[in-house]
Every structure is written in structure tokens, then in C-alpha cells.
Simulated assay, not measured.
Amino acid sequence: MRALTTIPLTAGSLEVRDMPDPQASATDLLVDGIAIGVCGTDKEIAGGDYGWAPPGEERLILGHESLGRVSAAPQGSDFAEGDLVVGVVRRPDPVPCGACAHGEFDMCRNGEYTERGIKQLHGYGSERWTVDQDYVVKLDPRLSEVGMLLEPTTVVAKAWEQVEQIGARAWFDPKTVLVTGAGPIGLLAALLGTQRGLDVHVLDIVTDGPKPRLVKDLGGTYHHDPVDAVAKRIRPDVVIEATGVSQLVLAAMAETAAYGISCLTGVSSGGRKLGVDVGEVNREIVLQNDVVVGSVNANLRHYRQGAEALAKAELGWLHRLVTRRVPLAKASEAFTPQQDDVKVVIEL
């Protein structure tokens, strides 16, 4: 079968090549790959920044934002031939730690987890793949063109869950959310905000192209003014930070309403130093009962939440989120940004 592969930690090794057909175990689904989404993680692995091949192998099959159709399922499983499915990315560590033992493997305590297409497990970027029936989610058949959006949706489903669980420590009735960043994560965070009935504001540096229209069509407000000015004006109850840009993180945190919750989903680059009045940040958080929380990855519960959110979304809006489709034979083109890209997918 053909697959998108790379040699981890080796820049320039991205290649579509023949790989052995997957062998399904007694508990596995055999799946025909439809498409994978491409995100910053894939680009960093392809760039040689990190990644781990399966033990004893040189190459790693990329692709953690999956979409496929079942071609064979174990007898007695909840799946059948023709089902539209998405595979879960992370697997619990073998020890396991307490979090993994309780199904919260997105919160693994010892770092011994594995991840499809990232860490020690082949990804879903191949013409066929297998997945254990306990780590796969069925999708609404209407999502056959956009179901690869589920994995990034799980990231924001978890982020919203974190916000709501923290808010539940006391009376919590949020009205306004500020999402910083209008990439796929930010736009999907905005989608889930509108589904919660909130006044949604999205901030990004882009002034034209598809992003402002996508926000408007959600019923949200799009901003490209400085973040501190926007945050002072709207005083958000919740901030979902989806850029990892240090200045945005700090500015958004400083201007929330009292008892504000900021959830950071973007990962900042190291090596940059900012002049920060730590005392003022401390004062703001303590005196306003503010909370700042980081959130990454997702477990099965978040996959099911994400699948429900996508099933409720306006299908045309989801289609417009996917701005470029590249065939597997030309997969390298998906790793070169183009103007007006939002979500780029590789068709398998």
C-alpha cells in the first residue's frame, strides 16, 4: 500500500512510498483510508523537529487527523462494513499511570503513552489502516468529506470541558468568549462556543480571505485590532488561546472579566524572552479569582463530544473550513503554505 512517511528527526525525508499492508488482529477494524488533515505537528515532524518511529523501524507513517471507511470489522463489534470512522491518536502507557488506568490517557502522568503518527505508532496516512475497536469513533455519514476535522475538534472539546469543569467550582454563567487565532483550532473553538449560546469573538491578524467570513457565518465577531484593546472592550468571561504567540497569551489573560478562565491550546516556541511584570500578573489572577489552564490532546470522551458537535454543525460551513485538498501522490504540496489556507487535507 502507499503511505506518507518520514524518518523522524531527519529533515527532507518526507516521502510517499510502498509500505507493508496492515495486519488486523482479532479486535481490529480494517479501514480504507479516505483522508488525513495536515497540522503544525505534522509539519514539525516532517521538518525533523521530533517524532518517533515504531520500535525497530526507520520510517514513521504520518497522519493523526484521520478519516476512513470500515472494510472489515470483528464479529460482534459495534462497527460494520461501510461505517465512517476516525481513529483515536493517543494510547495509554503500558504501566499504566493512574490517569491512563482511568481512561484519561490525554492526562498521562509519566509520559509513556504512544501516539498514532507521532510517537512509536504508525499514523493513518495510508491507503489502508487498522485500529483497535476500542480506539475508534463512528461518524455521521454526512461527514464523509469533512470528518478529518474530528481530531482538531476533540482538542477544543476538551478545552471547553476544562473551562466548564473549572467554572463549576462556583457559580458560573459565561456570556462572552474571545478566541485568539482563526486557524482550524480557533475556528472550531468558536463553533463550539456558538453551540453553547455564547457571544463569540475571534481575533486574528488576517484582514481578508475566508477567515473573517467563516467567523461571521457562525454569528461571531471578527477582530484584527490589538488583543489588549479588543479584550478591554469586550471583557471576555472565557479566553480560548489558539496561537501560542506569547504576547497574545499574556495580553488576553490580563483583560478577562472577574473570575475569567483562559484555556491555552497553542504551544509557544521556546527561546523568546518577554519583559513581563510578574507581580501584576499575579495580582490580576489572585484578586480576580482568574484561572489559566493548559489543554492538549483528547481521550475517547472528547472524541464522542467532538463527533456530536460536528454532526450538529452546518455542513456547508465545515466544507469551507477545508480550503485545499491534495492527492496522496502530491502529498508534499500540503506541507507548503499557500495564501488563504485554513485546513489542508491529503486525500488517500
Rank of each mutant, 00 (worst) to 15 (best):
E58S: 13
D134K: 00
A334E: 07
V215Y: 04
D134I: 05
K175N: 13
A251R: 13
D42L: 12
D42M: 06
Y222F: 11
V296L: 04
E161G: 04
P236K: 02
G275V: 12
L328R: 01
A11G: 14
L218K: 03
G76E: 08
R325K: 13
L315Q: 10
G294M: 12
V200F: 02
G260F: 08
E57T: 12
S268I: 09
P184W: 03
I36V: 13
V155R: 01
V342L: 10
L328F: 04
I61G: 11
A46K: 04
C97D: 09
E151W: 05
G103M: 09
A331D: 02
P210G: 11
G266D: 08
Q288G: 15
V239D: 07
P337L: 03
L214Y: 07
K119F: 12
L178C: 08
G219V: 07
T243P: 09
V281I: 14
T336Y: 01
T114F: 07
R301I: 15
G260M: 09
V296H: 02
K119G: 10
P226G: 12
G56Q: 05
W317L: 09
P55G: 14
I261S: 00
M253W: 08
V146P: 02
S77A: 11
S71E: 14
V342K: 04
A170R: 11
L198S: 03
H302W: 01
K175Y: 05
A257T: 15
V230L: 05
A311D: 13
V276D: 15
R272S: 15
V293T: 15
L121E: 14
G82E: 09
D217F: 04
D340I: 08
P54F: 08
V89E: 00
V31F: 06
G76M: 09
P337V: 09
V38W: 02
T336S: 10
L178R: 02
M148L: 13
L198V: 07
A329N: 01
S332R: 12
V215P: 04
V177T: 10
G219Q: 03
T5M: 07
L187I: 11
W52L: 06
D340Y: 04
G271Q: 09
A3K: 09
A309V: 12
L60G: 06
D18V: 15
P152E: 03
K232L: 10
P20K: 03
G294L: 08
L84F: 03
R233K: 15
V276A: 14
A157R: 05
